[in-house]
Design a protein around this nucleic acid. Structure first.
Lengths: 360, 360
DNA sequence: CTGAAAGCGCTAACAG
DNA sequence: CTGTTAGCGCTTTCAG
């Protein structure tokens, strides 16, 4: 088989100009139906598959795709309902605009930013990566529009998110109103390095995962305001985001401080794990222990978890829309979506000391 | 701001050739560290973001990405655990090879194949689309390697899948051994058109979704072999793949034929819906009704569903590996993964007529 | 309705 | 180690 046909060879074969062949594909109204038929017919005969997408992209300066940069490992994204919701929303937005969605391969092992530079895309969405992620820096260095989601604001870059700090503060106030003062916190990983265990105040404040940092800060705000010494509040971190991680974190925390009356978790997944651990220990929720989550995923709903619901699908869709509207100077530069407190059934007033010893 | 810097303008500025600049990025060992430093430094100063990925792709004939063609609507894929597992496996394979994963936007509304032609990718994976999907045809017309998964074999195209027909036959034999003869079937959509309701033998045989067709055929095999007149077996189809669809399908079937002793579902999701409907009707499973699924998703496990487990993540990974190994002529051309019967706890012998009337 | 001219921005021999 | 040459395959004014 000879080398593959190109638009030029097709034109030669037909004895017409390249323009005409190009038009046959891209501007059917620019040539006679008859000629067009002939062109397409000959293309089929020669096995010409139509204009090469890459060459076309080079010429038109449009790749027809949006790049998506996700947390270190992709598997994570496919297992976390909140991330999935975002992905779905973004995919929907792309689909609606006829744009492809290019998942940038981020090899967790070797730190290789090359993939970002190799991605033929018209723009990027960056979702919840650590502030110091080199891939993020690489994305920002590319001369294409970018939208960050669940990330700190970057000068000149559009942004989508929620008020993590305020939302969890509201939840905390609810617990405070119920009477909780001695609480424990379970959070997701705070930096790129694994640190399964207790978290110092300093670590919490310098966490490079913006969302986690903001949520912890929100808790500090609320409890400090009522005189709780936040430095004494036990905070346990887990690198892996899974129900079993949540369970083990809860175990670690309860072992260290059996007197906490509430376990505040920065994600529903962790909270579901905490519920499992409470059950294992024979602690009734919420009578013996209050447990709260964050996100509002379906499983949390089913479990009746007290949590904060955020519109993850909308967030993804908003990110996509913002990116695809980059040409429009009147678009918003920043979108903060609303959250909603879900009362659920896993929060109640703490037991009094008497109750602890003598039963309800 | 003047027009963006290019490799050529950088070279001019530096007074070196374009090759040298190119080498600075792509072959650091081909020039002195000092010169390289100067090049990169000047690049930063001029705001040159590095070689344009599209131009590079055109030149190298490598896009560095794999295209993925999925069922009509993307949301579906993000909500179906089996599809998600496949996606995760594929993403893992791509990630491992440093390849991007380009989700092809398939607009469910207008039938627009253009996106397939616009995708700058080195190959395609096609997962579970109808046999007559025009996007599939478009993919096959492109001169790049392709792997189909959960699809019928296509001449010259690599394939990954399981033995759907055999696997469900094995499950059916189990039910037959238990004594079930009067059964009903719940299946997913069989064609691109919506048809929520009963399925004729003809429709079942001409279904364009290969997987569903194969599973129904497997059931026919097993039950026909023991003398059950398959033409009389009620089969209910649902377009939407959700638990509530499964429930409504079960309701429709049980209303039409209250005497079936088993509900065989072609997916776990549908089966979970059937379980819910059974519960709603006060039917005990498996004493009053046997229910089976297919896939082996986590929720099915949790529900103790009798089903067939298939290695969805492995399937995705295998598809990716096969595609990325396309250059290797010794690779397998077709991979059939093993499935496993999961006994579960939702299948039992049917109640006898006496038991039906007088209780167990 | 058709064609000629002019690159899009880059890389890969190959020769110095 | 560096430069010259020669396109990759296509689209797009702008004339005819």
């Amino acid at each position: 088989m000879r080398r593959p046909a190109t638009l030029a060879s097709l034109a030669a074969e037909l004895g017409v100009s390249r323009t005409t062949v190009s038009n046959a594909y891209n501007r059917p109204d620019q040539l006679s139906p008859e000629l067009r038929r002939r062109v397409l017919e000959t293309a089929r005969r020669l096995g010409y598959p139509g204009p090469d997408p890459v060459a076309r992209s080079l010429r038109t300066r449009k790749a027809g795709a949006v790049g998506l940069l996700l947390t270190e490992n992709l598997s994570y994204a496919f297992r976390d309902p909140a991330a999935l919701g975002f992905l779905e929303g973004l995919a929907l937005a792309c689909e609606g605009a006829g744009q492809g969605l290019h998942l940038v391969p981020v090899n967790p092992e070797r730190e290789d930013v090359a993939a970002v530079h190799r991605a033929g895309v018209d723009g990027f969405v960056v979702y919840s990566v650590p502030d110091d992620d080199p891939h993020l820096a690489a994305v920002l260095s590319r001369p294409v529009p970018t939208v960050v989601a669940d990330q700190p604001h970057v000068e000149g870059v559009d942004r989508v998110g929620i008020d993590d700090r305020g939302a969890i503060t509201a939840l905390a106030k609810r617990l405070i109103a119920l009477g909780h003062r001695r609480v424990g916190v379970l959070c997701m990983r705070l930096t790129r390095d694994r640190n399964d265990g207790f978290v110092s105040t300093d670590r919490a404040e310098t966490a490079t995962f913006h969302v986690q940092r903001a949520r912890l800060a929100g808790l500090t705000d609320a409890f400090s305001a009522v005189g709780v010494d936040w430095g004494r509040v036990p905070v346990v971190e887990r690198f892996d985001h899974s129900i079993s991680s949540g369970a083990s974190a809860a175990a670690q925390l309860l072992d260290a401080d059996p007197h906490v009356t509430a376990l505040i978790c920065t994600s529903d997944i962790l909270a579901l794990g905490a519920l499992a651990e409470a059950r294992r220990r024979g602690l009734r929720v919420p009578q013996d222990l209050t447990v709260t989550g964050f996100d509002g995923i379906a499983d949390a709903d089913r479990a009746g978890l007290t949590t904060v619901r955020q519109p993850v699908l909308e967030k993804g869709r908003a990110a996509g829309k913002l990116l695809l509207a980059s040409v429009d100077p009147t678009r918003p530069r920043e979108i903060t979506l609303n959250t909603e407190l879900v009362p659920g059934a896993t929060a109640a007033p703490p037991r009094t000391a008497e109750e602890r010893w003598f039963g309800p």
